[in-house]
Computed example of a mutant assay.
Amino acid sequence: MNTSNRNHSMVLASLRFSSNQGQKLKQQWLNLPLEQISIEMVFRSLYFFNRACLQNPQLELISWLVENHRLMGLVKAVRKRHRDNAKRSLDIWEPTLT
């Protein structure tokens, strides 16, 4: 098995994380909703994770993604329209919540 196939296998194996690792990821990302995590950027960052694994084969995918989430742009920015929609929703539902 050549080096690139071995690294590709490591990445695929790391992607199959258990629910325990999923909980770890959720805790490390400060309980962000999944809507704020860019799936496209997660997949794009796998290339860089693969390159990092060439230098340090002991790396784990989840911890590496958490450490480099800003550099890789994994968390979506909260846009003005999202803040406006949240405020409007709060204005509508606030009387029923109290």
Rank of each mutant, 00 (worst) to 15 (best):
W93K: 05
A52N: 11
I39A: 14
D84V: 02
A52M: 12
Q36E: 03
E35A: 14
L74G: 01
Q21K: 15
K80M: 11
Q23M: 15
L90C: 14
E67S: 06
D84G: 00
V11S: 11
P33K: 10
A86P: 02
S19D: 10
M10D: 07
L34I: 04
A86Y: 03
H8S: 09
F48P: 00
S14L: 05
M41N: 13
S38L: 03
L34Y: 05
I37D: 02
R16V: 06
N7K: 08
V66D: 01
S18M: 04
M41Q: 11
P33H: 08
V75N: 00
A86E: 10
G73R: 01
L90I: 15
S4P: 00
L97K: 07
R83C: 13
H8G: 03
S63R: 02
F48N: 15
V42Y: 09
I37S: 03
R88I: 07
N20R: 13
S9I: 10
V11G: 06
L61F: 11
M10V: 13
L34K: 07
L25A: 03
I92E: 05
N68A: 02
R6F: 05
W64G: 02
D91A: 15
W93I: 09
N50S: 13
R51V: 12
P57K: 05
E94I: 10
E60T: 05
W93S: 08
P95N: 05
P57M: 03
V66Q: 00
A13V: 02
R81G: 00
D84Q: 06
P95C: 10
L30H: 12
M72E: 09
H8D: 10
H69E: 04
N85P: 00
S14R: 04
S9L: 13
H8C: 04
V42L: 15
Q27W: 00
R70E: 06
E67I: 10
R44M: 11
S9T: 08
Q23V: 09
R81S: 12
S14I: 02
V11R: 05
L97Y: 05
N2P: 01
Q28V: 00
N85E: 13
S9M: 12
L97G: 01
I92C: 04
N56I: 06
V66R: 01
A52H: 10
K80G: 09
R88F: 10
D84A: 10
V75E: 01
L90D: 12
Y47D: 15
L15S: 09
N20V: 12
S14P: 02
A13S: 07
E60N: 07
K24W: 07
S4R: 09
V11P: 04
R83H: 13
I39N: 05
L71C: 01
M72F: 03
M10P: 00
Q58L: 08
V66P: 00
N5E: 15
F17I: 13
M10T: 11
W29C: 09
Y47V: 14
L46R: 12
L59G: 06
Q36C: 05
P33V: 04
